[in-house]
Computed example of a mutant assay.
Amino acid sequence: MASQDHTADIYAIPTADDLRLATATNPLGRPIYLTDEVEDSQERLLTRLAGIHMAVNVINDLLANSDAFRERQASGQVNAPGEWPLPPTYVEGLFVAVRFLSEYAESLSLGALSESHLADA
């Protein structure tokens, strides 16, 4: 019978490298390009803006699909298997997420513009 090691440290705090390795892929196992690893600040900014843009597009597609489902359902049309509407609280939350992501992207863009004007001066 195997004995348990009660002296092992079960509360070990993961290092930054451990966390980076654990979060370097998305749930589908595809790599996530970490913007902190990019040395060029302009490239890092563009990578962040592209990520925000992709997230906003995906959220907008989810909202559009949910709305289309509800319209088809209301008119008595058959929906494809696997389609579903989002609950109202999710819809509101996603609209809020789009708003704040858009504001964040705008602030990043404006910050980059002001930095480029300071560098030109």
Rank of each mutant, 00 (worst) to 15 (best):
R44C: 03
T23V: 00
L28H: 11
D36Y: 11
Y33M: 03
L28G: 05
A50V: 11
E39T: 12
E37K: 04
L49A: 11
V38W: 00
I32T: 13
E37W: 03
V38K: 01
E43D: 12
T23K: 00
G29V: 01
P31S: 00
L49M: 14
L34E: 10
Y33A: 06
R30C: 02
G51R: 08
T35E: 15
P27F: 11
Q42R: 14
T35A: 15
Q42S: 14
A24F: 04
V38H: 00
L45T: 13
R48P: 00
L45E: 07
V38F: 09
R30I: 01
H53S: 07
P31A: 00
E39V: 10
D36I: 07
E37C: 06
L28W: 08
E39G: 06
R48Q: 15
E39C: 03
A24D: 15
N26I: 06
P31L: 03
S41Q: 13
R44A: 14
P27C: 00
E43M: 07
R48K: 14
P31T: 04
A55S: 11
R48N: 11
M54I: 11
R44M: 09
S41F: 13
I32K: 13
L34F: 05
T35G: 11
I52T: 09
L45C: 01
D36T: 14
M54Y: 13
A24L: 02
L34S: 09
E43N: 07
E37H: 02
E43L: 11
R30A: 12
N26Y: 05
L45D: 07
L46V: 04
T35D: 15
Y33F: 10
R30G: 09
E43H: 09
R44N: 03
R44W: 07
P27N: 11
L45F: 09
D36K: 12
D40W: 04
T25K: 02
L28P: 00
Y33D: 02
S41M: 12
I52F: 08
V38Y: 06
G51S: 06
D36E: 12
V38L: 13
L49T: 11
A50W: 07
A50T: 14
P31M: 04
L34C: 08
P27R: 12
R48H: 02
R30M: 11
A50M: 08
I52P: 00
D40S: 14
E43S: 13
P27M: 04
G29M: 01
L46Y: 05
Y33N: 14
A24T: 08
L49D: 09
E39D: 14
A24G: 12
N26L: 04
I52V: 08
L46H: 05
A55H: 04
A55Y: 02
R30T: 01
T47A: 10
R30N: 10
I32A: 10
A55C: 03
P31C: 04
T47S: 10
T47N: 07
T25H: 09
R44I: 01
I32V: 15
N26G: 13
L34T: 03
L46C: 01
T23R: 01
L49K: 15
V38G: 01
T23L: 08
N26F: 02
R48D: 09
D36H: 09
P31W: 02
Q42N: 10
A50S: 14
Q42T: 14
T47E: 09
Q42G: 08
E37I: 06
M54D: 15
D36V: 10
R44K: 12
S41N: 12
